[in-house]
């Protein structure tokens, strides 16, 4: 089932070259060949990477939601 080909990377704002290179390295390591970038201000900050049906949620939004749920 793990046929992860395309990675979707969501960012809050445009990233600089260094960051993009890091993202690319990370994504390639996990078997994705194509990367599509999305800009979504709603995540406030950080990054969300989805490869196939695995999601890496490092966004500020989800951190805040988590705090809201637990306080």
């Amino acid at each position: 089932m793990k046929k992860a080909v395309t990675a979707t990377v969501t960012l809050a704002m445009e990233a600089d070259k260094d960051t993009l290179a890091k993202i690319e390295k990370f994504v390639k390591k996990r078997g994705a060949r194509k990367i599509t970038y999305e800009i979504d201000e709603n995540i406030i900050g950080g990054i969300i990477i989805q490869i196939g049906d695995v999601i890496f949620d490092g966004s500020l939004r989800s951190r805040l939601d988590n705090i809201k749920e637990n306080v």
């Binding site: 989805q50 049906d53 695995v54 949620d57 988590n66 705090i67």
Partner: peptide
């Protein structure tokens, strides 16, 4: 203190 003690959810999650 309280906020610091909140565990961060796993960063890597399987979704659909």
């Amino acid at each position: 203190d309280k906020v610091e003690r909140i565990p961060n959810k796993r960063d890597e999650r399987v979704c659909g």
